[in-house]
């Protein structure tokens, strides 16, 4: 008899920790790991809503599957970009790559 709020609070904590990681970390790889945490939080939310609010529809579950799929693609691409930047700039720290400005 776990109320839905438990899962939602847990996913909030997970998402906030992800935000903290994304904002505080310097290494692009660590930032990516934090992004994964945020995606996990979203998946938990989707599934919780699916099983608590609309058990006869599976939309939440399906979306969780798509989240995982897209996350896999995202990780693959993002790591390729990180490799590329590392090869060009000899660093994977995002605050040392500041060419996105005037």
């Amino acid at each position: 008899m776990i109320p839905i709020q438990h899962f939602l609070v847990l996913s909030s904590i997970l998402f906030s920790l992800g935000i903290y990681g994304v904002l505080a970390r310097r290494s692009a790889v660590l930032i990516l790991m934090s992004v994964e945490l945020m995606l996990q939080a979203v998946s938990i939310n989707f599934i919780a809503f699916a099983v608590y609010l609309a058990p006869e529809e599976f939309t939440g579950l399906i979306f969780a599957i798509f989240v995982i799929t897209v996350a896999a693609a995202e990780v693959g691409l993002a790591l390729a970009i990180v490799l590329r930047i590392y090869r060009n700039k000899a660093t994977a720290n995002v605050d040392e790559v500041d060419i996105m400005k005037w």
Binding site: V22, L23, R26, V94, D95, V97, D98, M100, K101, W102
Partner: peptide
Amino acid sequence: MKFSQTGRLPNYALAIV
């Protein structure tokens, strides 16, 4: 105002959040 653009990703991410 362009000087407020640091070009650093973490700053932008913070602004988004």
